[in-house]
């Protein structure tokens, strides 16, 4: 039996639109993953602390507030500080393509916009985690 993929799904910042995050959490569960859902209004510090304790392979942020540049960057910075550089940081929401390109260049994974097929998201996570595990990031 192969190791389960563990994903943290979080809503960062002061944005109460959690429908998307819940749909994604349920879809990833149905794709056979173990999804830790943290709920609303999480600070980057809370998200990274939870990711560390839960030893997740993936952090997925949902953002509809417009604060995605600040929040993604801060989460990534804290991840690196706390030794979670191998963890995949991905996410989605209302995020303009030009911003997504910048974030990806800085080390964030793919950013998924409205209308994404949840199957494509699960497939992306499967591939990415397999790759990172093969590189020896996590046992």
């Amino acid at each position: 039996m192969s190791r389960k993929i563990r994903v943290l799904v979080a809503k960062a910042g002061l944005d109460g639109h959690d429908r998307g995050a819940k749909v994604v959490a349920a879809a990833l569960r149905d794709a056979g993953m173990e999804v830790v859902y943290t709920g609303l209004h999480q600070t980057p510090e809370m998200i990274v602390a939870a990711a560390l304790q839960e030893d997740v392979d993936v952090i997925g942020l949902s953002l509809h507030s417009g604060a995605h540049m600040v929040l993604f960057r801060r989460v990534l910075e804290l991840m690196r500080e706390r030794g979670l550089g191998q963890v995949l940081l991905t996410g989605g929401g209302v995020i303009p393509e030009e911003d997504a390109v910048v974030l990806q260049a800085e080390g964030v994974g793919r950013i998924f916009g409205p209308g994404t097929n949840t199957g494509a998201l699960a497939a992306y996570i499967n591939t990415e985690v397999e790759l990172r595990r093969a590189q020896g990031g996590t046992p």
Binding site: R29, Y37, T43, E45, A50, E54
Partner: peptide, 25 residues
């Protein structure tokens, strides 16, 4: 599917920044 949605943390987030508390799902 073998998957799981682990949601107990939602009720325990007030301790997220406390080093004296460790929550594992």
């Amino acid at each position: 599917t073998g998957g799981a949605l682990l949601g107990d943390r939602v009720r325990m987030t007030s301790h997220a920044n406390d080093d004296g508390v460790f929550v594992r799902s």
